[in-house]
């Protein structure tokens, strides 16, 4: 089954809606609580990333009995160096965003930690596509 969500850049208020919805659904599907938590934590982190850096984004969550595949496509500045972005503590977030408690440079590393597979495609000036795969078996 497939679920679609959208997210606006700068809208931290609603960043987290998709992960909350997905959490409810995975609980109803009897997915192991520990796996559910990993999916939700990674997705929440990714949602906040879109709100922090991009102009807008869409989220596709594809669920089958083998794995949960989350894709976040955004229109935004893109990531200049994926290697840097994957380093704990590295952040390009503005002071404003940091003041809100975000931008500690843990976003991508934390997503990576909670995913079985993480694929990042990014075009500077165009946008970023994140694919987060969590295996169920």
């Amino acid at each position: 089954m497939q679920l679609n969500y959208s997210i606006e850049g700068g809208d931290f208020t609603n960043a987290g809606n998709a992960s909350s919805q997905v959490k409810k659904i995975l609980k109803k599907l009897n997915v192991d609580p520990k796996i559910t938590r990993r999916v939700v934590v990674a997705l929440y982190e990714a949602e906040v990333n879109v709100a922090a850096h991009a102009y807008r984004g869409e989220i596709i969550v594809d669920i089958n009995t083998e794995r949960i595949r989350v894709v976040l496509k955004d229109e935004g500045p893109g990531i200049e160096s994926i290697e840097n972005a994957m380093t704990e503590g590295f952040s390009t977030a503005s002071a404003e965003v940091r003041q809100m408690g975000f931008g500690a440079g843990m976003g991508l590393p934390n997503i990576n930690k909670n995913a079985d597979e993480l694929n990042i495609k990014s075009d500077v000036g165009v946008g970023t596509e994140l694919e987060i795969i969590t295996k169920l078996k």
Binding site: K27, N30, V31
Partner: peptide, 11 residues
């Protein structure tokens, strides 16, 4: 909270 113990059926 689950709809069924089997994930496929639950879906």
């Amino acid at each position: 909270m689950m709809l069924d113990t089997d994930m496929h059926t639950a879906m």
